[in-house]
């Protein structure tokens, strides 16, 4: 009796929920043009601002390309993503798009897919160097190029004058942080040796930490000797700007650059506090994940990484439609 009742109730619930999810994932699964099946293993989705925009663009492009796209979200749990990967391989799709939750842990997934003969393209953040041979291509931000672009803005602003700047890095050991740092430092060395990075500390992608380390560096180097700051993303630059303000420095006179052009960073550029940033477009990211997948499916040999153009955003173009922040 009780079991029957339970069973009936579960049935109802499952069907109701499947109706619900059918509406919800409409755009995701209905685009089954030629029946080309693609799994996208993402670590975020509608639960994050970046992922929300990314998904929209991804689904739209999938529809255009006629791909039957199934999307998973592991919420940055590497184990969950590994399991999602197993599920995906078992479903035998024509291709898997992978956005690694933790780059160190995707090797088994790549091996599994390879054993099953399923090509894997990587999106947003690349796998480790030694795993690249197992993938069919990468699309996403050129993290080195982003650092370089931010450095170029800095050089232009310095305009040949000798200045001293501080650097706020991303999370220690994080691939993106390492690449952005290398891109920035090497470009400064090459293009404008007149700009000197006299101190550098990690701000861990986090506004509070960034504010703290900036204050420390200002104190250590002497606030008077500093003419500029570079932070590896918009969130951290906001913290750095707060630190400058709290020391009574005129932010508008300082040369400040970062990377992101997010909904946090863009207004800072518009109001002149932030002199320049580099656009990382989640829409481009999502769209090109599918574009790259389609190329691989068409049998195209993709030798080079498909990099997001590192568009510079300064006061001159900050309000343009092409660089409207989308996350």
């Amino acid at each position: 009796m009780r079991s029957t009742r339970t069973a009936a109730a579960v049935m109802t619930l499952l069907f109701a929920a499947s109706a619900l999810s059918a509406c919800g994932s409409d755009s995701a699964s209905s685009a089954s043009g030629d029946g080309t099946k693609v799994y996208a293993l993402l670590p975020q989705g509608t639960d994050q601002p970046y992922g929300t925009e990314y998904l929209k663009a991804m689904n739209a492009e999938a529809e255009k390309e006629g791909l039957d796209l199934t999307i998973t979200n592991s919420q940055y749990d590497a184990d969950k993503q590994a399991s999602d990967c197993q599920v995906a391989v078992a479903a035998k799709p024509d291709l898997i798009i992978l956005w690694p939750a933790v780059a160190d842990t995707v090797r088994p997934c790549l091996e599994r897919a390879k054993a099953a003969g399923i090509p894997v393209t990587v999106t947003n953040s690349d796998v480790k160097e030694e795993d690249k041979s197992l993938t069919a291509g990468y699309s996403g931000p050129d993290t080195y190029g982003q650092g370089a672009a931010s450095a170029e803005i800095m050089c232009e602003l310095a305009d040949g004058k000798d200045i001293n700047i501080l650097q706020v890095e991303g999370l220690t050991g994080n691939t993106t942080a390492i690449n952005r740092k290398a891109g920035f430092e090497e470009t400064i060395d090459e293009n404008c040796p007149n700009v000197k990075i006299i101190a550098s500390q990690p701000g861990d992608w986090n506004k509070d930490d960034s504010q703290t380390v900036t204050s420390e560096m200002l104190t250590a180097a002497g606030a008077k000797n500093i003419q500029g700051i570079y932070a590896a993303d918009d969130t951290m630059v906001a913290g750095a700007i707060d630190a400058l303000k709290s020391q009574g420095l005129d932010v508008k006179k300082m040369l400040i650059t970062s990377i992101g052009n997010t909904k946090l960073g863009n207004p800072l550029v518009v109001n002149g506090e932030l002199d320049g940033t580099v656009f990382q477009s989640s829409a481009w990211d999502g769209q090109n994940a599918v574009t790259l997948a389609a190329k691989v499916l068409d049998g195209e040999e993709v030798d080079e990484d498909l990099f997001m153009p590192s568009v510079k955003v300064t006061e001159a173009n900050a309000s343009d439609a092409e660089v409207t922040p989308n996350w």
Partner: peptide, 24 residues
Amino acid sequence: TLTGVQVDIQQIYIGGVLLLAVMT
């Protein structure tokens, strides 16, 4: 996951099943 239901909606299912289990 195989049918491509988004994680948020998966959680609704799992929560529903859990509540049912407890309620019954």
